[in-house]
Every structure is written in structure tokens, then in C-alpha cells.
Design a protein around this nucleic acid. Sequence first.
DNA 1: CAGTGATATTTGCAAATGCATTTAAATCTG
DNA 2: CAGATTTAAATGCATTTGCAAATATCACTG
Lengths: 162, 162
Amino acid sequence: MMDKLPSDQPPGTVPKLGEIGLTNFAPYLMNRIMGRYNASLRDEMAGLGLTTPKMRALAVLSVIEGPLIRELAVFSVVEQSTLSRALDQLAIEGLIRREADAADSRATRVYITEAGRASFETLWPHMSEAHSRMFRGVSADERRAFVGTLQKMLSNIRKHEI
Amino acid sequence: MMDKLPSDQPPGTVPKLGEIGLTNFAPYLMNRIMGRYNASLRDEMAGLGLTTPKMRALAVLSVIEGPLIRELAVFSVVEQSTLSRALDQLAIEGLIRREADAADSRATRVYITEAGRASFETLWPHMSEAHSRMFRGVSADERRAFVGTLQKMLSNIRKHEI
DNA sequence: CAGTGATATTTGCAAATGCATTTAAATCTG
DNA sequence: CAGATTTAAATGCATTTGCAAATATCACTG
């Protein structure tokens, strides 16, 4: 189970995945974990008529007020064309509202409605619970450090993004 | 940027996402990071005629010898039906080989071929580079701790899984 | 200020996805 | 050990996805 952990690479060499070990390779672990996390929410969402893109948009909108659609796409990690269609549905269901930007008439800002907020708040306890389950047996300090590393990683990968 | 970090919940209360802050919520950060990581590989993969499911299967097979298809589905975080079709393609391209299990004739084991290994080894440097970029400015100790936490999380979420 | 290029969003369409079902074989049960 | 149940993998099919193109507007440049 505990192979050797990835260390700094000897110059000019790229250690193979087999040498690192699947269960020591962070992206692998993260994909595994998020795959499960997202799958576990899918059922709850289905019951509320939500899909992953719709839920993600609502989640972000519950926190960020009136972003542009392209910003929302980045924050919610959904392709813009997919998001566009998800917003169509959310709008029909009265969970969000599109509003033309005052300064730029190409742009659209998105606002969550009260119904949208209510819908997300029905889902949130399940998300929160999945989150707690994920961190079972991880101390507050360790969690803090973990989130701190994630924040560094995010700033590393978003090049010229928001 | 640095809101307060999630702490242990007061009994009987679930803090809202807005209170935690999007950028302190680990699943959000992880989805963001993996979204970028996976997207950055998609281009490289496209050039090699690979899709995400095909690449993931190859990656796992480069490390695990002859898993059952349902095991491979778990390890590679791909729906079984999607994997089945990805394997069809990989087999046509000669990158993997399906072999009936000796003991259970319902089951199929999957093996990577030399060509498959070669194909993955063409992609691997890009994955490795994306990985390094992700961890830029994160010390070896911090990485170790991070991976350690991920391993705990994985064992928390996989209930009765492999 | 007309023309060229960039940007915001939507939409057409082919391909990918995932649920539910099917097929086949193993295992359990009375 | 026949019949019912579970399990492994593949497949049918409707939905979703994402790329590329279209549309509309803005910003820049000579």
C-alpha cells in the first residue's frame, strides 16, 4: 500500500507512473475521489431535477452575485455551451434569471432566484454530508493544510484565468 | 482571498457554502483543479487518437496487470458501459488485448500490449509535466502530506469497493 | 469612422455518455 | 439439482456533450 512517495526528479529523468505508484499519484487519487463524490450527489440531484452542470451553476450562484456567463463557466467548471443550455433549463424552472449587462450588451449576467436558492439549500446538506464523510478521520489542522495546498494548486493551473 | 477556513461544525448546524467560501471548500477546488488538469491533457490525447476513457484505461493497465473489466472501470473512474466501448477501440488499435478469465467464463481480463505501453509512454511526459506544474512551489513535505490526506479520503469514500 | 479583429453567447450537429436492458454464466437455496 | 438470484460484460437508445460555426456587439487602428 505504501510505496515510496514521489520525490523531486533526478535531472533529465521522468519517473514512470508504475514507479510512482497509482496510489501516490495525486491526479489519479483526485479523479477517483471526485468521481465518487460527484456520483454520490447525482442521485440526490436527480430527485430535485438537477444535473451536475445545473447544480454547479446554482452552487456558484449561491455565493457569487451576477457573474457573466463565461465567468460562471469557469467557476462552475462547465463548458460554456453546456452551461448555456443548463441555464436555459434553470431559467425555465425559475431557478435563475439572465439579465443583460448594463455596460456591454453582448454580455449576460446571471442571478439566482429565491426558488433557486431554496433548491440549492435542499441539496446542500447532502453535499455537506458527503464532504464530512470524505474527511472522516482527518484532523482540522490536516484539513487546513490540505485546503491550503489545493489553493496553491489552483493558482498554479489557472494561467490567465479568472 | 483568505476567508476563514472550515472548522468543526457547531452541533446541529450545517454551515452554508457561502459561509465556508467557495475557495475553502475542498470538493470545489478539487473539481476546478482536475477540470483544468484533464482539459490540458485532452489536447495531447487528441493528437494520439486517445480520449479520456481510453487514456485512463491505458494508464491503469500500464500499472495493473490483467484486471477484470469491472475492476478496471473502478480504477480508471469510467462507467462500465463507456469503458466497454473504449476497450473496443483500444483493441482495434492493438493497444490492449481482452482475454477470457480462466476461472470465470463470464469475466474478461484486460492486458496492455507493447503498442499500448508505447502509446501511453508518449503521453506520460505530458501528464508528468502537468503534474509538476500543478505542484509548483509546493515542498516535498507538503506534497507528501497532501497525498497522504488524499489516500485517507479515498479509503473513506470507497465503501465496499476494490 | 469604416474596416478588421476580438469577445460574449448561442446553436447545429456529430459523437460520446450513461441508464436500463440483454445475454451469458456463476452461485445460492430449498 | 432445478429454479431463482446474482454477477460480468455488452448493447440499444435517448440524452448530453463539446467542438465548431453563427450571431451580435465591442474595441482598436489607420
